[in-house]
Write a protein that binds this DNA or RNA. Structure first.
Lengths: 115, 115
DNA sequence: ATCGTATTTGCATCATTGGCTAAATACGCA
DNA sequence: TGCGTATTTAGCCAATGATGCAAATACGAT
């Protein structure tokens, strides 16, 4: 799983894990807390967390028998930066749409002039 | 593969596919053109493209025996929006860093005052 | 030392994925 | 019609991933 982006995106490619991140965005949580919303066995949850940890999306401390998980921004920022590369492309597309819209409106106006 | 984000992220979770998108950001290309930079058999390329198409990241027309692929912005925008949810979290972290830096600088200044 | 809670590890299973080769398909052109 | 190029389908394999159950581990509290 070589580079960061690959492990980050593949970690994000799972709804359960995305939901976990959403939960963690509101503050740290234990494994059991994170498991609560899902109909999944704890070992399964544990493994999802390991994937997230492997991607650097979360870190965990060891506090008594609990393992509080904490969201880490770094990989998300990197993913954001990668997608950011295409933002120009988004706007181009948007501009094109806008241009087309203008053309249509102009045509329509012209049409109405005739009447 | 239920929702858009899942298929989008899992499509992005492969370096070859990301490279293909990077190429397509500069304009449409045929399968063979897209295959050129990689040491992969054409059927493999073809399947990568099918994944990208399945995620809506590309569309293709049929022009003679060629299948030009074109980058589509929509899924990237959605992924961008999802990650955008966490942007506040990024900046928080950044602010914290900045605050810490200020504290350190203040401490250092104080230290120098003493001398 | 023992009990109970929190979490992980160890198989086993089933589906998916990425890759290859060989064969099929689709189309323009001679 | 027949050839050559472009691309996909089919079949096979190895690796990975998601999930469950049962057992192990870790640690606080009694």
């Amino acid at each position: 799983m070589q580079d960061h982006l690959t492990s980050t995106f593949s970690a994000l490619a799972d709804p359960t894990r995305r939901a976990m991140l959403a939960r963690l965005a509101q503050g740290p949580a234990t494994v059991t807390e994170l498991a609560e919303p899902f109909a999944l066995a704890l070992p399964t949850i544990s493994r999802h967390l390991k994937v997230l940890e492997g991607a650097g999306l979360i870190t965990r401390e060891k506090s008594a028998q609990f393992r509080p998980c904490r969201l880490e921004a770094r990989p998300l920022e990197e993913a954001d930066a990668w997608i950011g590369t295409y933002r120009e492309f988004f706007s181009q597309r948007f501009d094109a749409l806008e241009a087309q819209l203008k053309t249509m409106m102009a045509a329509k106006a012209k049409e109405e002039d005739k009447q």
